Simulated scan of single mutants.
Amino acid sequence: MIARLQRAITIILVVFVAGWAAACVARGHAAHAAWAALLVVGGYAAFLAAEFIYAAIRHEDGAAARAPVGQLLRAWIVEVITAPLVFCWRQPFRSQAIPDAVDSKDAQGRPVLLVHGFLCNRGFWNPWMRRLRARGIAFGAPSLEPAFGSIDAYADTIERAARQLHAASDQPIVIVAHSMGGLAVRAWLRRYPQSEGLVWRIVTIASPHQGTAFARHAPSTNGQQMQIGSRWLSSLAGTESLERRAKFTCYFGNCDNIVFPATRALLPGAVHHHLPSTAHVRMASRREIFDEVLRATELR
C-alpha cells in the first residue's frame, strides 16, 4: 500500500512540474519553467524546517543537551536531501529490488531482521540489505501492513520473518528497527513471548519508546498509539521484564525531527547511544549503527 501511495504522489509531483515547465515554454516564458520545481522543493524544505523548529521548542532536559542552531541546520540540510531518496525512490519504486537473503548456504554469523517504521516499507532498508549481502549475512526485511492500522497487527508478520530466519540459520537473530518499528518489535514480543529466545540483540533507531510529541494529533490508529502517555504505550511497558529490555540498544538524537523530545526515544533498562546532528531518516544511515550490528552478528 505504501509503495502505491508514494508512487502515485511522486508521479503527480513529476507531472505537475513537467506540465508547468511545458506550459511556460509554450507561452514563451521559459525562464519561469523551474518555478514549479522550486515550489515543490521549497515547500518540502519549509515543512521539514517547521518540524525542526517544533522539535527544538519541545526539548526536555535529560540524556541529550539542546541542539545548537548549527547542528539543527546541518541536520535539516542533510534530511532535505536524504528523505526524498527514501520516500520518492526507494520505497515507491525499488521496494522489491533486493530480495531477502534467508536460505543462503554461505551465510556468515547471526542473521539480521530489518523492521521499518511508519509510512515506510522494506525499500527503506535497501542500503542495509546491499551491505549485508556483500558481507554474506542472511537477512529478512518484511513490509508491515496495514500501513495505518494498529501496531499490534504487525506482530504476526514479524513472527513469521523471525522464525524463518532462525530456522534457516539455527542461530539467534539480530533485529534492527527504525522509528515505529521498535514499537512493533516490542508488540511482537508481547504477543509471542516464547519467541524472545530467538533474539540475540535488538537495535532500535529513533524509536518513540515513550511516544513522540509529533503524534499529538495523529489520525491513524498507530499514530495515536505513539502519542506521549497513550494507554497503548503504558500497557506495552507494563508487560516487559528487565531481562527483555536488556537486549535492547537504542540510538536517539537531539536533532530528530519526528521523535521528540529526544528522551522519548529512550527505553528504561536498555543501552542508549546519542547521535548528534542527525535527523530522523538520516539516522538509519549512520555508520556507527551498522558497525554495531555487524559486531552483534559475529559468532564468538
Score class of each variant (00 low, 15 high):
A30P: 08
R300Y: 15
I137W: 03
H217K: 14
G253I: 02
A67N: 02
R58T: 01
V271H: 07
D256H: 04
G229K: 02
G223K: 12
W188A: 09
D152Y: 00
F260A: 01
E288Y: 00
V199F: 08
A8P: 01
Y54R: 06
D61R: 14
G109E: 12
R110W: 09
T157G: 03
T297V: 10
I11W: 00
T221M: 10
R244I: 10
P193N: 04
V259S: 05
C88S: 15
H274F: 15
F214A: 05
L132M: 10
M1W: 14
S195N: 08
I158P: 13
I12S: 10
I12N: 04
V80M: 03
G70C: 03
Q210L: 12
L48G: 11
R90C: 12
V293K: 06
R74A: 15
G62D: 10
Q210W: 04
T278W: 02
A167G: 01
L38Y: 08
W76N: 06
A49Q: 09
S169V: 00
Q210D: 05
G136L: 11
F260P: 04
L114D: 02
L266C: 07
E298K: 00
G42A: 02
L13E: 15
D103K: 13
R27M: 15
T82V: 15
W125V: 05
T212L: 13
A18Q: 08
W232R: 06
G229L: 03
A75S: 12
S234V: 00
A50H: 11
H29A: 03
I173L: 15
Q194F: 08
A237G: 15
A56G: 01
E288G: 01
